[in-house]
């Protein structure tokens, strides 16, 4: 596999970029259904094709506005079908802090790119995300034209859609098993959360709240669970490199687990205090990052646990005893 290419910043088109060699296989430990799915599906089945593109003359500020308006985190730079590079949220943040937000993007766009081909199996894309830790990959066709962008969110969304039938089957099975539990309810949901994906942040918690309302749980208990889920979802979105929020009701207890693979928290005790945050100005401008999230999760939870290590991942667990709280209210 070749490490990438490289167009000189701003001048050479990026459609001379090479892609990595074929021949990788997915991890043998993957479940069979998933394995079959990621081998069968192609990058083109998953990628986003409705792209917002800019010419090289666009300023970083114009792109920032485009990202804000369209709620996207990466904008390809393309002219007459020739792909020159990509401007990401990270590039914008660097431009803001470096004071060159009004410069043209040709000077500051990322040109050292790894690209995927649209007819590659999805398993290749997964390997690339694992290997390069990039938020997204441009996708080109055989004519070296940019045809789409793929991010982990696209993959997660597609895989979740395909796997939903399997989840439903398991859920129905579990319902029968747990019919005599304290609340008589069994629910399991898993939500992938992407870094800086403010377009979707909060949707998982909104869905959790809706599911609780459908099950006639007392509003005050719903609020506690929804607040815990929302704070953890926002945390995954703004502080982690992306992760998964899982929610389960079993034996009358709601358990939310937010798990990510990095970057980890150096001082967990400090992070759980009210008013402490590592959020940047951009996150604060969106109304978050006041450093009250973890403390608030702890406040609404009956049981709160957090495990983290700098350079590694973080896992936060919030448990709320629905059956007990319902009984107290009666």
């Amino acid at each position: 596999m070749s490490e990438q290419p490289q167009a000189a910043p701003g001048d050479k088109p990026a459609n001379s970029f090479s892609t990595t060699s074929h021949g990788m296989s997915p991890d043998d430990s993957e479940p069979l259904v998933l394995l079959e799915l990621i081998q069968r599906m192609k990058v083109r089945d998953v990628m986003t094709t409705d792209l917002t593109k800019v010419p090289r003359s666009a300023t970083m500020h114009e792109i920032q506005e485009l990202m804000r308006k369209n709620k996207i985190s990466g904008v390809p730079v393309e002219e007459n079908g020739r792909f020159f590079g990509l401007v990401s949220i990270d590039d914008i943040i660097r431009a803001l802090s470096g004071g060159y937000i009004n410069d043209s993007c040709s000077e500051h766009m990322t040109t050292k790119l790894v690209v995927l081909e649209d007819d590659m199996p999805l398993s290749f894309a997964l390997r690339y995300f694992e290997r390069y830790h990039y938020g997204r990959f441009p996708v080109i066709n055989r004519d070296q034209r940019l045809v789409g962008i793929i991010c982990q969110r696209d993959i997660n969304r597609t895989l979740l859609r395909e796997l939903s039938r399997e989840f439903n089957r398991l859920e129905s099975k579990a319902k029968g098993v747990d019919a005599d539990t304290a609340s008589g309810i069994y629910v399991y949901r898993e939500f992938p959360i992407c870094k800086y994906d403010f377009e979707r942040a909060g949707k998982a918690s909104n869905q959790i709240k809706k599911l609780l309302q459908e099950r006639n749980i007392a509003p005050k208990i719903i609020r506690r669970i929804a607040v815990a889920a929302y704070e953890l979802e926002i945390n995954l979105c703004v502080h982690s490199d992306g992760g998964v929020l899982t929610w389960e009701i079993v034996n009358g207890k709601s358990e939310i687990i937010a798990r990510d693979a990095g970057p980890g928290i150096e001082d967990v005790e400090w992070a759980c205090r009210d008013g402490t945050s590592t959020a940047n100005e951009w996150i604060r401008s969106l109304g978050f990052g006041a450093g009250m999230g973890l403390a608030n999760v702890k406040r609404v939870s009956d049981s709160f646990e957090i495990y983290s290590r700098k350079g590694s991942g973080t896992t936060v667990k919030s448990q709320i005893n629905i059956a007990e709280a319902q009984q107290k209210q009666v």
């Binding site: 403010f198 377009e199 942040a201 909060g202 949707k203 918690s205 909104n206 509003p219 609020r223 607040v227 929302y230 704070e231 969106l286 109304g287 978050f288 990052g289 006041a290 450093g291 009250m292 999230g293 608030n296 406040r299």
Partner: peptide, 25 residues
Amino acid sequence: SDVLVVDDDDILLLTSLASDQVLRT
């Protein structure tokens, strides 16, 4: 973050922030 620590029911939220997250919150 401030709104999320409010425990009152049936509140009205006044804000100058115009984003989807305001509604989700």
